[in-house]
Design a protein around this nucleic acid. Structure first.
Length: 281
DNA sequence: ATCCTATCCTGGCTGC
DNA sequence: TGCAGCCAGGATAGGA
């Protein structure tokens, strides 16, 4: 499922094909993909607007639009689990899962695909406002070890559900939370307000290291779903330490990786490397 | 404040 | 082989 590294990869690859383009007619095969707007209102807002920037915020692809050099809102695209973006040549057949298609002034077509229909392709008048609920970007300079430590201590929640909360940190999902917790040697059920400064700093470092390494490998692909806009799979799945490795030996200590459920999410961890602490026996 | 559950969806898997 | 049933999973809403 696309998380920060996958969405970052998508942004990087579609940016050169989208920036500077003027949008034309659109076709909508699944209306709920648009959120609140009807296809008619969506088409009206988008047609004739020019893409001035493509960026990522959390797990959103943000396409900033303008008309006559004045801001014209933006596209907020969320891939959820199975969404994909492609810029295709004219008349290219992307198959049965195309939910939204938007013509570009160079003849190409922006396609949004989504097998499970959870993804969203919305136009909003005020992107900043619509993204205001998101927490800090984990790879930005505002995400400091000390701020992270203070934020952890200010809540009383299990680490895993807290890290999945987009209002706490933006962009982490099930895979990279499991990987980061393992790298930091922390248990997903550790209470956030019980984490020491040292451990908080280790987790901060683990999150950044994991995300940066995954971006370098263009994200993770382990099923038929995530592909880059070029159609290529990512390769970070080859680096997984715990995700999807239940029953296999921990690459650090050899113990079998366990799979438990935390907050209704499949959760992978090494019960030897990731102890809850303070440990009582 | 935090937790839990249901909802949205479909392809793919399991088990009979 | 065919088919029913279950599962994954991000975000959000509503209830406890």
């Amino acid at each position: 499922m696309p998380e920060l590294p996958e969405v970052e990869t998508v942004c990087r690859l579609i940016r050169p094909k989208l920036v500077g383009r003027t949008l034309g007619a659109s076709r909508v095969a699944w209306e709920r993909t648009l959120g609140d707007l009807t296809p008619r209102r969506f088409a009206h807002r988008v047609r004739g607007a020019r893409a001035r920037a493509v960026r990522r915020r959390g797990k959103f692809v943000v396409v900033e639009l303008e008309r006559d050099a004045r801001p014209a809102g933006g596209l907020l695209i969320h891939l959820r689990m199975t969404g994909r973006l492609h810029v295709d040549p004219p008349d290219f057949d992307r198959g049965p899962y195309v939910r939204v298609a938007v013509d570009l002034d160079d003849g190409n077509v922006l396609h949004f695909l989504d097998v499970r229909k959870f993804g969203r392709f919305r136009h909003v008048a005020e992107p900043e406002e619509a993204l205001g609920h998101l927490g800090p970007e984990p790879l930005s300079s505002e995400f400091t070890p000390e701020r992270f430590y203070a934020d952890l201590r200010s809540r009383r929640r299990f680490l895993k559900p807290l890290l999945l909360d987009q209002g706490f940190v933006a962009g982490l999902g099930n895979i990279y939370v499991d990987e980061s917790l393992h790298l930091a040697r922390l248990h997903p059920l550790q209470a956030s307000d019980s984490v020491s400064r040292k451990k908080a700093h280790a987790l901060h470092r683990a999150i950044r290291t994991t995300l940066a390494a995954a971006i370098e490998r263009e994200g993770s692909s382990f099923d038929a779903f995530y592909r880059t806009p070029e159609g290529q799979p990512g390769s970070y799945q080859d680096q997984f330490q715990v995700y999807g490795r239940d029953g296999k030996p921990c690459l650090s200590c050899g113990r079998r990786i366990a799979k438990i459920v935390v907050g209704q999410r499949g959760t992978h961890l090494c019960l030897r490397c990731q102890r809850r602490y303070p440990t009582r026996s």
